[in-house]
């Protein structure tokens, strides 16, 4: 069984939202827009694929005409046509 860090355990006990503790969060509007918070960095970006460091693994967003509408230290807003999501350990 995977042991959670102390901060995460405490957060769960206090019922705090995960993003407040720095956990990555993904929100998707239809298949056109995705908001990614607290990701660990961009591994790859092209028109068809965006790969991000995601917690302990990585998150792959496949699609067409993928464009980064905005990004800063914590948030990335992606637009385009999303076709597939993939998590990798």
């Amino acid at each position: 069984m995977k042991h959670l860090p102390l901060v995460q355990k405490l957060g769960e006990k206090l019922e705090l939202p995960g993003e407040a503790l720095g956990e990555p969060k993904l929100s998707i509007w239809g298949d056109r827009l995705a908001l990614l918070e607290n990701h660990g960095g961009i591994l790859h970006w092209s028109d068809e694929l965006l790969a991000l460091r995601w917690g302990g693994g990585s998150l792959l967003l496949h699609g067409a005409d993928l464009r980064i509408r905005a990004m800063d230290g914590a948030v990335l807003l992606l637009s385009g046509t999303l076709t597939k999501l993939e998590w990798k350990e």
């Binding site: 960095g41 961009i42 970006w45 092209s46 028109d47 464009r67 980064i68 509408r69 905005a70 990004m71 800063d72 230290g73």
Partner: peptide, 13 residues
């Protein structure tokens, strides 16, 4: 740039 806290918009590859 993300680590520096820069805000980039309308990125085009």
């Amino acid at each position: 740039s993300r680590l520096e806290g820069l805000t980039l918009r309308h990125l085009e590859s």
